[in-house]
């Protein structure tokens, strides 16, 4: 560490001071990113912190958010891992197209994702109407809808992370396993997946983080009903008008969770080269 700091000082002394034309805009950008978070921490009414967590609405929202994000991660593991494997290992027609389609929700505005979900699974949606006519079940405005919305927006993070890990570890060890008599399922279980585990963990954390903050798609597709579809972000949005203090407390909880995620991923992405 000392040597790296020394090297930096030595470089500064040989190359001169950083120019103001870079320092000033860089400083403004940093302030823009840091100040709102600092204000949130300072504004949080720490005195009533625990009391505010005891209301029914908050407890429901916490429960739904925790449930939705947990189910989302499980859905990613069970469904997203096979999809990532197919994209990385099986040469089928339309693979490039499918990979592009999988990435779309990454850049899609969440509200648009919600509208898309309504048109597919809504009461009169493409699949939703069939579901309603055959079983009488409708998805919108249920906790299931929350989970579906969360999975929809989170899955791409997981799939792309795992697919990247599968590609990086390559097919070499799959070939070795085949020469040792292993079928593809055995190879997947004992070789491919263990070697891709860093990608699986990173993808799970990313998916979980995305689910935790999900707001737009959820409120569009599942609504904002306390006790069934109201998640933490929805509750924050709602309380900000009536009771800003509670909104800040709830935001603080999500901030702490986000920072915890960042700390978990620190070694992966935040280590300077």
């Amino acid at each position: 560490m000392t040597t790296r700091a020394d090297a930096r000082r030595a470089r500064a002394s040989t190359l001169g001071r950083p120019p103001l034309v870079l320092v000033v805009p860089g400083g403004i950008a940093a302030a823009l990113l840091v100040l709102p978070l600092v204000s949130l921490v300072l504004d949080t009414p720490w005195g009533g912190f625990l009391d505010q967590l005891r209301t029914q609405a908050v407890r429901d929202a916490l429960r739904i958010t925790a449930l939705a994000s947990a189910v989302t991660v499980v859905a990613c593991l069970l469904l997203g891992t096979p999809l990532a494997w197919l994209l990385a290992r099986v040469d089928f027609r339309g693979r490039a197209l499918l990979r592009a389609a999988v990435a779309v929700p990454l850049v899609l505005p969440p509200v648009v994702a919600g509208v898309a979900l309504v048109s597919a699974l809504g009461r009169n949606g493409l699949l939703g109407s069939v579901l309603r006519d055959t079983t009488g079940v409708t998805l919108p405005y249920t906790t299931t809808a929350v989970v579906i919305a969360h999975t929809f927006v989170s899955m791409p993070f997981y799939v792309l992370s795992v697919e990247g890990a599968l590609r990086a570890s390559g097919e070499r060890y799959d070939v070795v396993a085949a020469t040792l008599g292993a079928d593809r399922w055995t190879t997947f279980r004992r070789v491919t997946l263990p070697l891709a585990m860093p990608g699986v963990l990173a993808g799970s954390v990313l998916a979980w983080a995305r689910s935790l903050g999900e707001f737009g798609a959820t409120i569009t597709f599942a609504g904002n009903y306390p006790g069934t579809t109201q998640t933490m972000p929805s509750l924050i949005y709602q309380t900000l008008q009536a009771d800003p203090e509670v909104a800040r407390t709830l935001s603080m909880i999500l901030l702490v969770a986000s920072v915890a995620i960042l700390a978990a991923l620190r070694n992966r992405w935040l280590t300077a080269p």
Binding site: V175, V176, A178, T179, L180, G181, A182, D183
Partner: peptide, 12 residues
Amino acid sequence: VLVRDRNVGLVF
């Protein structure tokens, strides 16, 4: 016969 069903040992 698939790779896995050929009874070979390969040393790389």
